[in-house]
Design a protein around this nucleic acid. Structure first.
Lengths: 168, 168
DNA sequence: CTAAACTTTCAAATATTATTGAAAATAAAA
DNA sequence: TTTTATTTTCAATAATATTTGAAAGTTTAG
């Protein structure tokens, strides 16, 4: 396969994965494009490569910056803004985990905590079933939360090395 | 908080989480409803509780069955079908992981494998950058794949015990 | 200051996804 | 077989999400 074709396929695949995970397809595609670009790109270049409008490119790049996946750069003597993705995939994974934890897991934990204060009679089947599910999900979510905290602190080497052996 | 209010909040929260993860909101809500129902419910009951149409309830229940999260039951002497969710939350987590692995991770691994065969000159910056990103994502995805395999085989207690220790 | 280069905004248009509801299909009972 | 209860399908509709593009905003240079 030629590089040009590979690039296209990569952008397409990353976009598909993104939408399966609730991330806007275009955002994932812009991220993909920046991941495989050796140099930072301007808004115009992103627009041209992906055939998207200026407004879309601008908003999408801002979102990627808010996710901590892309940074704005300036070239001396130039007025245009350039955009570059963090190419360290371990950082990308951590950053995504961090944001989703903040945006989704934490609000969920708050609700579950509240729901586990609902009182009732354990002899009431409706209450007992509700309470068990809420309590169990609460435990699972807390474990996931702690796991993510640990992952966020972990070194890259962790992932590429030791864990794999332990997880046999 | 009263049980009735708690139920509503739980269904709402589970629906929200679902849509953030690319799962249809209604599907997540039906799942939530079944999780907190002590008894199996009929299509009519689901329709009434969530104010959804018969067609929607039917399709959603079928999807939940395809995800392995809900099963059809029959009561002796009755013609109606009843639906019940697997209440073991660890099973639920495993089932979701298993399905997403099959539907998303595995196709992604296939594409990445193909993309890592793209040939080129490492002195060509465009090629080198493409290749590094693809290779790194490939490694990460393979690690995730193996980790999920381990999770699928694991007992709940074992999984969290080891993971939390390992991630320290 | 004004003009030019560039970025941001957001209402309107488009595209995508979810839902309805009534008809068709199926299956058990009479 | 015919009737009745129940489930399934799917074209039409509604709801949501994304994208556009042109106007407004901002910043720098002259």
């Amino acid at each position: 396969m030629e590089l040009a074709e590979g690039k296209q396929k990569f952008i397409e695949a990353w976009g598909r994965i993104g939408s399966e995970w609730g991330i806007n397809r275009t955002m994932a595609q812009v991220h993909a494009l920046l991941l495989i670009s050796p140099d930072a790109l301007t808004t115009e270049e992103v627009m041209d490569e992906l055939n998207i409008s200026r407004g879309n490119a601008n908003m999408t790049l801002r979102d990627l910056i808010n996710w901590g996946l892309v940074e704005k750069q300036h070239k001396p003597g130039e007025r245009k803004e350039y955009f570059a993705a963090d190419k360290d995939i371990w950082n990308v994974a951590r950053q995504v985990a961090k944001e989703r934890k903040k945006r989704e897991l934490e609000p969920m934990l708050k609700v579950l905590k509240e729901l586990s204060t609902v009182e009732g009679d354990q002899n009431d089947k409706a209450y007992a079933t509700f309470n068990k599910s809420v309590t169990d999900i609460n435990k699972l979510a807390n474990n996931a939360d702690r796991m993510i905290d640990t992952m966020l602190k972990a070194e890259e080497s962790w992932f590429w090395g030791s864990v794999l052996k332990i997880f046999k």
